[in-house]
């Protein structure tokens, strides 16, 4: 009952529709020292899973006004998740590799 929707040619982000549930789940990878999508638009209440697909540790954090979080660092194959509860723009980064950056637009 779950559909994985590819958001770009390289199969970088998967939208996981949890049946008829209202909140959706998304997956963003960290691969070759980059987030697999530069931008992602979600709805308030949606959850994004950040999955490390590289052979070394990555981090995920945001110091945005809208939402501040720090998921620590974790190895290949593991993921951590963030639920976005307010509308606005969130800049997401990896503290280990400053060139890794993406934006999540949270819509009402």
């Amino acid at each position: 009952m779950h559909a994985i929707v590819k958001l770009s040619g390289a199969a970088v982000a998967a939208l996981l529709l949890a049946g008829t549930a209202m909140a959706a789940e998304y997956e963003v990878g960290q691969k070759n020292k980059a987030f697999t999508v530069k931008e992602l638009t979600v709805k308030v209440g949606d959850t994004v899973h950040f999955t490390n697909q590289d052979d070394f540790f990555h981090n995920v954090f945001s110091l945005s006004d809208l939402k501040t979080f720090d998921l620590g660092s974790y190895p290949k194959g593991e993921f951590k998740s963030v639920t976005f509860d307010k509308a606005g723009k969130v800049e997401v980064e990896c503290a280990i590799h400053p060139s890794m950056m993406m934006t999540i637009n949270v819509e009402e």
């Binding site: 779950h2 994985i4 199969a11 998967a14 949890a18 789940e25 697909q53 194959g77």
Partner: peptide
């Protein structure tokens, strides 16, 4: 949610 996660990892 759990099921969706497993599915996601399989895809990865």
């Amino acid at each position: 949610t759990g099921a969706a996660r497993i599915h996601a990892l399989a895809g990865v």
